[in-house]
Computed example of a mutant assay.
Amino acid sequence: MEPNGKEQKNMGKLQLMFLAFIIISLCLHITAGRKDREHFKNLLSGNTERGKRILYLDYIRLIATLFVILVHCLDSSAFSHTKTLFPRIAIQSLIAVLFVCNTLFIMNSGALILNRREGCLARFYYKRFIQVALPFFCYYGIYILLSSQYFTSGFFNGILRAGKDMMAGPIDWAPHLWVIYVILSLYILAPFFSILLKHLPDGLLHGLAALILIFRCIGVYLPAAGLPVNFQLMISPWEGVFLLGYYFAHPASFSRRRLFFCLGGISLIGTVLCVAFREDYKAILLAEGAPMMILLAGAIFLLLRSLESRLPAPGRIMGFLIRYSYSVLLVHWAVLYFVHERFGTTQNPVLTFFLVLVCSAAAAFLFDQTVVYCVQSFFKALARLVRRK
């Protein structure tokens, strides 16, 4: 009975802590609302006016988020009632295509970050810490709480153990967070990559993109053909995808859009054929920087770029989902577990997807505007104090 008593005591402490976050965040929001009349309006969708945001990148981020949720909803039920060949191949192919979400996320980060002009290195790292790292750490706390192993030996010992495991990578309860670890690591060198890329003429940009794709083909397809090689670019596969995000957002790539549309279509067909005829299709399609996923993502980028003037401005619901897409990505895995346990929807991926999306959006809004908002406000105040000194 003693461990149960300790767990209840620790949960009581956590509940009191969350209540404190709610009270403090409410005070902070009221104070901010008095200073800025648009504060509460921006909580729902942020600034979605044309000209102040890159619309097609917002669409890409939203598409990638929806793909992540859908692939996880399908993955848990894909083989439960598909014993015949063609439906199974169709579902496996759909899942494989949806995994382009990881490439889209990293490519979208490269398009946004590598095209910015921060100027001051310290300011760049400060903004990424406040906007990306802090929410990541806060949401990680949800998965630490779900994993009951951390607080059986005391609250503060649990915090220390959890922090140690976080430094080592995603815990078992949060496998999807690997992509955030990759993005955070890419941000370290992003300011230097940005300077280098902006000094490359169009011809060299095309050459860099071609080299990245060629070396990814060598690194993925030759081992699949039984010819293992140890011949790589100096940059890692995900770094290559990150740099290609800059390329596909650059005007130079737009002149090659028809080529990439064709390559994207070929990759789509190749994905289905690979699933149908190769048992090791995951090693080919889901490898780091898989060429087919890169070409699919590049085609999506250029397609949405070419349609940007025709894309409708986000409405309230879409604006809300875009505003909280990063947080939805972070929290959806916990919500998926809750939906499966509470509603038993593992046999109905469409219903699961809808419930997970709605509940994740609600959870993201509440958690962002309480816990995350308080933590961000604290570090901003601390940074102002340091600058004054």
Rank of each mutant, 00 (worst) to 15 (best):
M11P: 04
G12N: 05
L14Y: 11
M17K: 08
A20I: 12
I23E: 05
I23T: 09
S25L: 09
H29C: 05
R34Y: 07
R34M: 15
D36F: 14
D36G: 07
H39W: 15
H39V: 13
S45L: 15
G46D: 06
G46E: 05
E49K: 08
D75H: 13
F79I: 14
S80K: 10
H81V: 13
T84Q: 15
L94F: 06
C101N: 13
N102G: 14
F105V: 02
M107V: 06
L112G: 10
I113E: 07
N115A: 14
E118R: 06
C120P: 09
L121E: 12
R128G: 02
V132C: 14
A133S: 13
F136Y: 12
F137Q: 15
C138T: 07
C138W: 04
C138Q: 04
Y139T: 02
Y143E: 05
I144L: 09
L146H: 14
T152M: 13
T152S: 12
G154Y: 05
F155H: 01
F156P: 01
F156S: 10
N157I: 09
N157Y: 14
I159G: 11
L160T: 09
L160W: 14
L160E: 12
K164G: 11
K164Q: 08
A168G: 09
G169H: 04
L177W: 08
I180N: 00
L184D: 02
L184M: 12
S185W: 12
L186W: 01
I188E: 01
A190D: 02
L197D: 01
H199A: 12
P201D: 08
G203K: 11
A210Q: 03
A210G: 08
I214D: 10
R216C: 13
C217V: 07
P223L: 01
A224D: 05
M234H: 11
W238R: 00
F242K: 01
L243P: 00
G245P: 04
Y246L: 06
F248E: 00
H250W: 06
H250F: 07
S255D: 14
C262N: 12
S267E: 01
G270N: 10
T271G: 03
L273T: 13
L273H: 11
E279W: 15
D280L: 04
D280R: 04
Y281A: 08
I284R: 06
G289P: 03
M293K: 13
I294N: 04
L296W: 00
G298R: 00
A299S: 06
I300W: 05
L302D: 02
L304M: 05
S309W: 11
S309E: 12
L311F: 09
L311C: 07
P312S: 05
P314C: 11
P314N: 04
S327V: 06
V328C: 09
L329G: 05
L330D: 04
A334N: 02
V335S: 02
V335G: 03
F338G: 11
H340E: 12
R342P: 03
R342A: 10
F343N: 00
Q347N: 10
V350G: 11
V356K: 00
V358H: 00
S360F: 03
A361D: 00
A363H: 03
L366Y: 07
F367Y: 13
F367M: 06
T370N: 03
V372Y: 04
Y373F: 08
Q376R: 15
Q376C: 12
L382D: 06
L382M: 14
R384S: 14
L385G: 09
L385C: 06
R388A: 15
R388W: 10
